[in-house]
Nucleic acid binder design. Structure first.
Lengths: 148, 148
DNA sequence: TATTGACCTCAATTATACATGAGGTTTTAG
DNA sequence: CTAAAACCTCATGTATAATTGAGGTCAATA
């Protein structure tokens, strides 16, 4: 180790994600590595910031596919503070949308808790047109572009 | 059709969920059906309320497994207004937790957007101990019991 | 009655985000 | 130098929530 580069194990320890996850992120194109003559991965220190960004975005409910599309703007180059500012404010907006959806749903729940009106066809909770962000596998929320 | 019971197609149309999804819910034990002599599903009108509840809970980010555990209290019996009140207030609490998590994350994002501090080891966003609800497949949030 | 639309079961596929294990190679420490 | 720790690839598995398709049956209508 040393020499200014990090092995997968190093990155795993310092970033808190599993080695298998780093492999997976690489396979999915979210991160990149150099290889030693023996084919082992070596990373630049800037990988730590990149991984941190991925984790934060994930916490915000953003899918890896979307995260990737944002990170693609700087595949190799280090993510600068202003890059980070741009990304994080976009994500902030997504987070806000999501929070708003959930809050609205909660408020509707509130308005229906007392009345048991679930059987009425005009109950705000049963209105199919009025779908709030669907959740579940593949987080269909917070998706912008539908490609690949 | 008619005779006070509904076919899968009827339920699908009136609830807005696909026939295949109704089959799936039945297989998972969230709903039940009677069969005609020809083996076709027939539902009581109360199925519509039940399905509505499932959809609402899903919107709130609650997994089918948890939803099932709540619905199991009344497998056949119609869900009464007071049943609904109890469930919905529990879900409200879960929703609130989730909203709180996301809001905190957003606030941290806010506090970091200006500083580009992602490289500092004391950045609130990089603190691994301080994990907010993880998302992703299998919605690991909002889970109470970890069985089956 | 015949035909079409609706329904049935069961298996396989899709999508997301990884974890696990087998079988083998590379590095590093002593 | 050697043994253990770390690493490699590739395949398979896990969990959730469905969707799709094949092959066949049932029911309502013209």
């Amino acid at each position: 180790m040393m020499h200014n580069t990090l092995s997968v194990g190093d990155v795993a320890r310092r970033s808190g994600v599993a080695v298998s996850t780093l492999h997976y992120y690489e396979e999915k194109g979210l991160i990149q590595s150099l290889r030693t003559q023996g084919n082992q991965r070596r990373y630049h220190r800037s990988i730590l910031r990149r991984v941190a960004i991925i984790r934060i975005a994930k916490q915000a409910g953003i899918s890896l596919r979307i995260i990737k599309s944002h990170l693609e703007k700087f595949p190799t180059r280090e993510v600068s503070p202003s890059d980070w500012q741009q990304m994080s404010s976009e994500w902030r907006a997504m987070l806000n949308k999501r929070i708003l959806s959930l809050t609205q749903l909660r408020d509707k729940l509130d308005s229906c808790i007392g009345c048991g009106c679930l059987s009425l066809r005009d109950c705000p909770l049963r209105n199919p047109e009025d779908r709030l962000g669907e959740e579940g596998p593949g987080a269909r929320i917070l998706e912008e572009e539908k490609q690949n």
